[in-house]
Design a protein around this nucleic acid. Structure first.
Lengths: 197, 197
DNA sequence: ACCGTAGTACTACATCCAGAGTGGTGTCAA
DNA sequence: TTGACACCACTCTGGATGTAGTACTACGGT
């Protein structure tokens, strides 16, 4: 088992690309080798089996999605109103969409999880934790909306991203910002402070 | 090219199962043969190539999702209020979820569409038409809500189904009906919403 | 400065398996 | 009898795996 961390990271990133491009079934050691531009047989030396590679790839996608400092500051410092929430959601949709290979790889992993209980357990824990963190942070920060708001936004916007990445012509790109605004506006309605008489 | 329609249909249905279970990459003629319990080489005689099989499988899923007569009558005859819309949406979510192989196969096809422009075109047309039909029918029938309502419900509920089918422990099954009700309640704004900039 | 060692990069091989396509034969019904 | 189909068998091909073996590099000890 080789240890070189730079090479290992390169292989994991390559695995994400392969997952997105070739599908879960196409994720072979050889394909990862080619993608990472290292000689055949290298990935075999770094990962004990496919499951190992799959779970590490999934974890890496989340790492690479961490908001950077400026985006994080915007959340903490911005006002607690609907318009700002819309802006945040747009930022999030943009951030996820801007790493399409990562998003598609995660969808592939979901489908693969259908067949591999262990992977399913790992993914479930990861995604549930992420969702709970979002809910917790949302409530704590005093943003408008309750836990249900966060869950419904999670559902709607995730599908929006999936739609954009797989069948981009269903919703034209120009419509995305409006859809996010609509989603926030409506899903927030019961708690919304606004509506003047 | 063999013509026997019963056999052809059996092969297409088998292809859906294979797609869901093994993924797009696992959809081989041989795998379809095994799934349909016919001798090796049979699928080769019925489909010219994989694309042929893929597109036919996609079309077949939609056929099998057509609401039956009783469900359709319920839509036409029921009242035009929020509670009834909730019931309809629950019925729809249940109907799609009850054919998990079909749903997962469509997701596989979406991912495969990423790689095959022709398949992408076919799927886009099909799904866009379906969505437009839903919108048209919704408006025509006098249901509460506008086109945006339909689109947002489409997004949120689709993700809900995907979540249930791939990582069922994220949302417990007992919560699904509540989530649908929440989605309808919030997305269906009672009054005309005020769009923010 | 020299050498030995450890870790890694790279190559090459032996093996294995699954899929494709197709030719040929058997079967049934019009 | 003929034609369409079911079934079986065979070959060819490609890709994947894992590992043995060699080469390279860095580093520590003397």
């Amino acid at each position: 088992m080789r240890q070189n961390p730079a090479r290992r990271a390169a292989l994991v990133d390559a695995a994400i690309e392969v997952l997105a491009r070739e599908g879960a079934r196409g994720l072979t050691f050889r394909a990862v080798d080619s993608e990472a531009k290292v000689p055949n047989g290298t990935a075999s030396n770094y990962f004990t089996n496919r499951d190992d590679l799959l779970t590490q790839a999934g974890a890496r996608v989340y790492e690479r999605w961490q908001p950077d400092a400026s985006a994080f500051a915007e959340v903490v410092e911005g006002p607690r109103d609907r318009a700002h929430l819309t802006a945040l959601m747009r930022e999030m949709v943009g951030r996820l969409t801007d790493f399409p290979a990562g998003y598609l790889a995660l969808i592939e992993l979901r489908l693969e999880a259908t067949r591999r209980p262990e992977l399913r357990a790992v993914l479930t824990r990861r995604i549930r934790a992420d969702l709970d963190a979002n809910i917790g942070f949302h409530l704590e920060s005093g943003m408008p909306g309750d836990a249900t708001t966060v869950v419904l936004l999670y559902m709607a916007l995730n599908w929006l991203i999936l739609e954009r990445l797989t069948l981009p012509d269903i919703f034209p790109g120009s419509q995305v910002d409006d859809l996010v605004a609509d989603a926030v506006e409506r899903i927030l309605t019961p708690d919304a402070p606004v509506r003047e008489a």
